[in-house]
Amino acid sequence: MKFTKKIIPWLFLFGILLYIGCDKVNNPQYNIDDTSCNECGRCIQICPVDAIEFGPNSKAVIDQTKCNQCGRCITICPKDAIY
């Protein structure tokens, strides 16, 4: 178990470096950090294309088929949960 404790952080650090180092996609895509979302629903009210609704754990979820990447939800979110 001690070995597991030691190896896991290093595996994730390796993963992080790998991801940060690779190229970025051309089409942006917004997502919601469900641990930060406080279920206030302000992003749902402001979304001009109705692309956000409450998901399984009552946190807001973006429907990527409808989202037009306008970014309005980023500004309105009081918990800065959009990324």
Partner: peptide, 17 residues
């Protein structure tokens, strides 16, 4: 982190960190 693997370029691309 959200990343995608692009089949056409055979590359890992990052969507958002």
């Amino acid at each position: 982190n959200r990343s995608v693997y692009d089949d056409t370029q055979s590359k890992l691309l990052r969507v958002s960190n």
